[in-house]
Design a protein around this nucleic acid. Sequence first.
DNA 1: TTGTATGCGTTATCAC
DNA 2: GTGATAACGCATACAA
Lengths: 345, 345
Amino acid sequence: MKRDPDSGGEGRGSVVPTISQVAKVSGFSRATVSRAFSRPEMLTEETVRHVKEVADRLGYVPNQVARALSTGRHGNVALIVTDVANPFFPPLIRAAQLRADQAGLCVFLGNSDEDPAREELLVGRFIGQVEGLVLASSRLDEAHIRRYATRRPLVLINRDIEGITRVLIDTAPGVAAAIAHLAELGHRHIAYVSGPTTSWSNQQRRNAVRREAEKRGLKVIAVPARPPSYDTGRLAAVQIIASGVTAAIAFDDLVAQGLLAGLAALDVEVPKSFSVVGCDDVLGETTYPPLTTVSARCADAGDVAVGLLLSQMSGGMSGEIRHKLNSHLVIRASTGPAPVKRRSR
Amino acid sequence: MKRDPDSGGEGRGSVVPTISQVAKVSGFSRATVSRAFSRPEMLTEETVRHVKEVADRLGYVPNQVARALSTGRHGNVALIVTDVANPFFPPLIRAAQLRADQAGLCVFLGNSDEDPAREELLVGRFIGQVEGLVLASSRLDEAHIRRYATRRPLVLINRDIEGITRVLIDTAPGVAAAIAHLAELGHRHIAYVSGPTTSWSNQQRRNAVRREAEKRGLKVIAVPARPPSYDTGRLAAVQIIASGVTAAIAFDDLVAQGLLAGLAALDVEVPKSFSVVGCDDVLGETTYPPLTTVSARCADAGDVAVGLLLSQMSGGMSGEIRHKLNSHLVIRASTGPAPVKRRSR
DNA sequence: TTGTATGCGTTATCAC
DNA sequence: GTGATAACGCATACAA
C-alpha cells in the first residue's frame, strides 16, 4: 500500500509533510497539532504559535480528505445545470456560488446538456463527495430524483416534485401580464415559440399563455424552437410570419433574440409590424430593439436554492418546502400596437 | 469518535452500509468486496455478481472519500475564473467541463470576481482536494502562483508566467488585422477602450493596438472601461465622441456592445458615422449592428487547458509549455469607411 | 482466485 | 491543557 509520495504532482522530490512530522519536530503530540488547526481555542496561545511555526517551516497543510473521512464532513456541494452557456444560468450559478462561498463551501459544477443519462452520470460522480446537491432544470425522472434525495439533501430549481424541496420561478404572472399587454395593443393572433417539452418552465409558460389567451379571446398557435437557442429562434421566424400572427412570445430571451434577427432578415419591422416578447430578462437592454420580456429573477433562484440546501444540511428543516419566486413584465421596445392591416395567410 | 450515522443527510434512520456489512452478508472478505468494485477482473464473474447483488440489496455504494484517502487520487480538478457571468467564460467553462468529463473528473468551479484575495481563498479551499487546477485570467501575484504550482499541477489561461504551463489566446494578430482594416477604411484617429490594468489580455491588446497603429501612422487614444462591462462601455461613448476619433476598438465584446448602445443614445450612426470593433467574438451576430470583432477561440482555451492539465497530472510532461491560440478578424457590420468630415473636437 | 493484515492522515474519546 | 489510541472506510502487499 505504500504510495509514491511524488505522485499527484505533490512537491518536487520532497515528501508531503503529515501531522506526524509536525508532531515529531515540534515535540508535541499529533493530537495537539491537530487541535492547533481545528480548535486552537483549546490550546495555549504559545503552543498554537509554536506548532504553526513548525508547520509553516515544514510546509505542512492539513489533508482535507483525511479530515473528511474522520469527521464525515467536507463542505462540498454540487450544482448541476443543463447548459452553462445559456445566459439563463450564469447569473444563477454566480449567485449560488456566492452563497456557498459565504458558508465556506466548495461547489462542483456539472453540465448535463439536457441529457438525462449524462445528468445521472454526473450525480453519481458527485454524490459520494458532497453534502448536498442542487439540480437546476433537472431532466432526471422522478424516481431517480427521489432516490437521490434519500441519500443527500437535495433541492430542485424549476422542477416541481412533491415532497422534494424546490424553488420555482413562477413566470405565469409575468406571462399573463405579457398576454394582457399584447391584447391591449390590439393583437388578436399570437404565437408561442416553445422550448423543451420536458422542461417544467416551458410547460408552465405554455399553459399560462393558453389560459390567459383564452380568457381574452386571443388565438394562439405554437411554434417549436428546439433546442431553445438564438439559431432556432431565428429559424422560427419564417413559419411564424407565414402563420399570420402579429405577435410572438418566446420561451426565453435567447429564442426571442433569434426571432428578432430572423424577422429583420425578412424585413419585418419590430415593433411596427410585429411584436416580440421574451422570457427571463437575462439580456437587459442589449437587444435591438430592447426586448420586452418577463423578468425571472434567476439569480435569486440560485441564492435561495443554496440557502435552502444549507438549512437542510444542518438538519433544521421541518416540512416540505416549495419556494415560489415572482415574475413581472418588463416593457421595453419590442412590443407595439398591432399593425392595422396584414395580409391573411 | 463514534459518529451519528444519520448526520450529513444520509439515510432515513438506516445506517450507511460499509464494505464490512457487505462482506459479512455476502460471506466474502472485505478485500473481495473491495475488488468487486475497483478491480472486478481479478475475481470470478460469479463472485462479482453475488457481491454486487448483496451490495445492491443493502444499498451499499463505495465511499469515495475513504477511497481517496487510501489511494491518494480522487479525480477532482478545480477551475477558477474571474466572472462566470461574463460571456467570455461560459464557453470556456463548458469546454473545460466536457474535457474533464471525458476523463472521468469532477470539476470545482470558483468565481474570483477579479479579487486576488478572494481567488487566494478559493485556491486554498480547493487545493487540498483536487489533483490539479486551472486558473483563468488569474489576478494572483506571481509568487503565489509559483508556490501553488509546486503543490499541484497547475495551468494558466491568459496569464504568462515563465516556467508555468499556460495557454494564451493570442489576440495580437487579430487586433493588428483590425487596425489594418480600419486604416484601409480611411480612419486616422481611433480609440482603444481598455479593460483591467492587471489583465494580461488587456496589456496584450493595448500593445498590439499601439504597435500596429504606429506602424500605419494612426493616432490612438485610450479610454478606460473598468470593470469591462456593457455599462462601462456605454458610458465611455460620450468621452470617445468628444475626443474626435472616428473608430474604436474595445477590450472585449461586452464593452463594444455597450459602446454601440451609448453611441445610439447619442444619435451616432454605426457604421456610417463611427466604426466599432470588439474582441473575443462571444456575441456572434446578436448585436445591432452585428459586431466586427476579433475571434478568440475561448472554448478551445478551456479544452486545451484541461488537456494539458491531464497530461501534467499523469506525469507525462517534459519541459515548459506555452500554448498559443491564434485569432483572426471577423468582419461584420459595425465597421465602415471613415466619415468624410467630422467636426474637430 | 481469495483472505489477512496493515496503512492512508485526521479527529474524537478518553485519561492524565 | 495535553497525550495515547481507537476509529473513519477503503485499497493493496503478501500469503495462502
